[in-house]
Design a protein around this nucleic acid. Sequence first.
DNA 1: CATATATTTCCATTATTCTGGAATTATCGA
DNA 2: TCGATAATTCCAGAATAATGGAAATATATG
Lengths: 110, 110
Amino acid sequence: MELNSAADSLAALGHDTRLAIYRLLVQAGTEGLNAGVISARLALAPATLSFHLAHLTRTGLVASRPDGRFIYYSADYARMNELLGFLTANCCAGEPCVTAAPCCLEGEPA
Amino acid sequence: MELNSAADSLAALGHDTRLAIYRLLVQAGTEGLNAGVISARLALAPATLSFHLAHLTRTGLVASRPDGRFIYYSADYARMNELLGFLTANCCAGEPCVTAAPCCLEGEPA
DNA sequence: CATATATTTCCATTATTCTGGAATTATCGA
DNA sequence: TCGATAATTCCAGAATAATGGAAATATATG
């Protein structure tokens, strides 16, 4: 993973509203939630939500899946783990250290 | 950890230059590096580096320790783990899932 | 086909962040 | 004490991001 791409993802998560959206999706599982449900739960104006969902999607943290009139959004767990791995890579200069274990990868296509 | 505080930390990491600084410090270990060394390695103007180090320090990701004319900066590994834990908290809606293991906590005062 | 609903895109305003030269503060060594 | 070095703060211009009303797009249902 490139530094540039990791920074983009972290910047996407570095905003109260987007982080709240992302956590909602992380907790929702692979099914995801449609935009209307997210909008209702977080009390966001449609245009504002759309802007933030587009941002999260652009960085690869979130995937979207149309279903009729609805669009379902879900967290991409593989991407999350890539990002966690990037942050802890080569850490601690040889001092005692355990690297972070992969999380939530079951059911993901790797 | 509060959502607000996590978002601040993620935003701090969501910038190419700050992420590069942070990774340098993560890899440098608990000793850390002084500002001059960081400035030289990343070819940053002093004022620019100072701005970014202040940002990282404000969020708690980085600690500073004066030593004579030098100021040493180091990654706060406990804080990094808090942040990783926050991102993966309650994830996957009961689907098979392994939470991230703590990293780099040896030698930290918890 | 007409209407209702879901979501996005357009757009303009407002707010925030980034950058680096110059001045400032602080420490070291002679 | 004086000059050199380390790092920060001040400042202002330039760039980027966030917000939400209104219009547009797309799908479902009667």
